[in-house]
């Protein structure tokens, strides 16, 4: 009897796993609410089925040791709508003024979405997108901070009754996608699909709407 209980307890430890549910994101990238391909129509990783991904992964041959990556496409132009930087609505009958100089924008210049067990370090062996732009005759000035102030000087915005003031960010970027597998002695240990979005330009927009 004791051994049965012990076996059951051990089984619980082995098979027990916390339920995991990722935060919903329409694009698979938290900072973008919308991503549109400029030149052609393609699916984002978030819209691909597991069968489609498995089909592509099956095409990667097993190797003795190391990571094999198959690029589906690299640095395709996209336009994005970012999540809202800030929004202030006024549901009162009085107008109010707020100073948005303290507001900050948090975003990454490279956003990553991964499906599967593959890790980003394994897939990022190709040149970084900024290197692709760096010609011999120029130096690249890539801003690397991921947390920055939008404004250094203050700006007062008046929000009138039943109105909402929003600062939005839209822009252009480059998207890359591929599949990777990690092998050791021809045995696959990790596999998955990944997608990276590199922000090239951000355009800021101050908008007043009805609250």
């Amino acid at each position: 009897m004791k051994s049965i209980i012990l076996y059951l307890l051990l089984s619980l430890f082995i098979i027990g796993k916390d339920a995991e549910l990722e935060t919903y994101s329409k694009t698979g990238h938290d900072q973008f609410s919308e991503i549109v391909f400029v030149d052609d129509e393609r699916d984002l990783l978030v819209d691909m089925t597991q069968t489609q991904i498995d089909k592509q992964l099956d095409r990667i041959k097993a190797k003795f040791i190391g990571v094999t990556t198959k690029y589906s496409y690299t640095y395709k132009d996209i336009e994005y709508i970012s999540t809202v930087v800030f929004s202030r609505s006024n549901k009162t009958s009085e107008k109010f003024v707020f100073d948005y100089s303290l507001q900050t924008v948090e975003y990454q210049e490279r956003s990553l979405n991964v499906k599967g067990s593959v890790s980003y370090k394994n897939v990022s062996k190709k040149k970084e997108v900024e290197n692709q732009f760096a010609a011999d005759a120029s130096i690249s000035y890539t801003t690397t901070e991921s947390f920055r102030e939008t404004e250094s000087s203050s700006m007062k915005v008046t929000v009138y009754p039943d109105k909402k003031i929003t600062l939005r960010v839209v822009g252009e970027g480059k998207i890359s996608m591929g599949y990777s597998k990690t092998h050791f002695l021809w045995i696959c240990f990790k596999k998955g699909a990944w997608e990276t979005v590199d922000v090239v330009t951000s355009y800021f927009e101050l908008v007043e709407e009805d609250a």
Partner: peptide, 18 residues
């Protein structure tokens, strides 16, 4: 007065060495 507004940010800027 509108003291300052960031209209855009160029994340991949190229400066010609010339």
């Amino acid at each position: 007065t509108f003291p300052s507004f960031t209209f855009f940010e160029n994340h991949q800027r190229e400066i010609p060495i010339s």
